[in-house]
């Protein structure tokens, strides 16, 4: 089922905030505005599922640690954070940014927080992909006598 564009955008920034390194997110967005905590940051797990043969029936592969948090800004926007790992500050910061990105601060925060995170992530992925590409085998075939 396709989602409306605002949902897609929100899912994208929530993913970006979840994948961010906690220290980096803190450096990019150090001060937290006043907010009301609806669900205090809580550490738990999510069962990661795979599929038999990569595409078949689902199975339970194992869990991963996740921290989640829900809060409300004084202006009323709800923010949710679901981040990998056990860093409550990371989940809280992600939830606050999720709420703020729904306000007129979107463009400013997009430039100050999301864009640097996306650029750094893309650079890290490109570096890793390039290192992998350097280990790609370039086969060459020797001509055998009877083929000449």
């Amino acid at each position: 089922m396709p989602h409306p564009p605002e949902t897609t955008a929100r899912a994208a920034w929530m993913g970006q905030l979840a994948r961010a390194k906690p220290d980096r997110l803190r450096a990019l967005f150090p001060d937290l505005p006043p907010h009301e905590v609806l669900r205090p940051a809580e550490i738990g797990t999510v069962m990661v599922q795979g599929r038999a043969g990569g595409t078949g029936a689902p199975f339970n592969l194992g869990e991963m640690t996740v921290t989640r948090c829900a809060l409300r800004l004084t202006t009323g926007e709800l923010g949710y954070g679901h981040v990998q790992g056990r860093d409550k500050d990371h989940a809280t910061r992600a939830a606050i940014l999720d709420a703020l990105l729904q306000t007129d601060q979107f463009s400013a925060l997009q430039a100050a927080v999301l864009a640097p995170l996306a650029a750094e992530e893309a650079a890290a992925r490109a570096t890793r992909a390039a290192r992998a590409a350097a280990t790609k085998v370039e086969f060459f075939t020797l001509v055998r006598g009877e083929d000449q």
Partner: peptide, 29 residues
């Protein structure tokens, strides 16, 4: 692990979209 609450299950991971660092096949060169 037994001390942690379970929030739920993920969507099954899509390994076709893996950011591959190693990928070898013994059946196709």
């Amino acid at each position: 692990r037994t001390t942690l609450p379970r929030f739920g299950a993920s969507i099954p991971v899509d390994t076709a979209r893996m950011a591959v660092i190693r990928r070898v096949s013994a059946t196709f060169k």
